[in-house]
Amino acid sequence: MIIQALAFYLFSAVAIAAGVMVISARNPVHSVLFLILAFFNSAALFVLMGAEFLAMILVVVYVGAVAVLFLFVVMMLDINFVELRQGFLQYLPVGTLIGIILLLELVLIFGGWVAAPEAAANVAIEIPPPAELHNSAALGRVLYTKYIYLFQAAGMILLIAMIGAIVLTLRARPDVRRQRIASQVARRPEDVLEIKKVPSGGAG
């Protein structure tokens, strides 16, 4: 138990610290690397809670794919973040004010938190005890039965994202030479080779 608690505080502290570094690091690449660290620690927190499947999915999807592409973009773009931050001080007072107001609101809300008695009664799906059903199986059961409509809707959203990406970026380039393997293989010496007799000797 002690180890679990220690692990929890370790992971959450690193996650929060990494989160702070994401927004305060001067170098955007460092920001992304810290973001990855934060993802990692969140995955570790999931594991501590017994949600291994979610933890792995978080690593595979966010760290393994999304952050990689993000890192690509950040590395390729030559953004001068120092210049972007020029207006930072100017907007600082207003930003701080809004931040404080939001914080106060949050405090108010959570100060008024009653673990709503009706909330527990409203929980839509019984969570099966982990001993009976492994959490990937449990997720699969609700995802493909109760929430099949939302699952399919999410599929349509991703389809749109794909169409959008293609529509907005794909350009047919007529001037590019493409490889045509069939014509390459079918090429015969007489089509491309011309054998000339070179007269030898004498400056004729």
Partner: peptide, 8 residues
Amino acid sequence: YGFLGTTN
């Protein structure tokens, strides 16, 4: 959801 425990 947090205050009512349901999204329905």
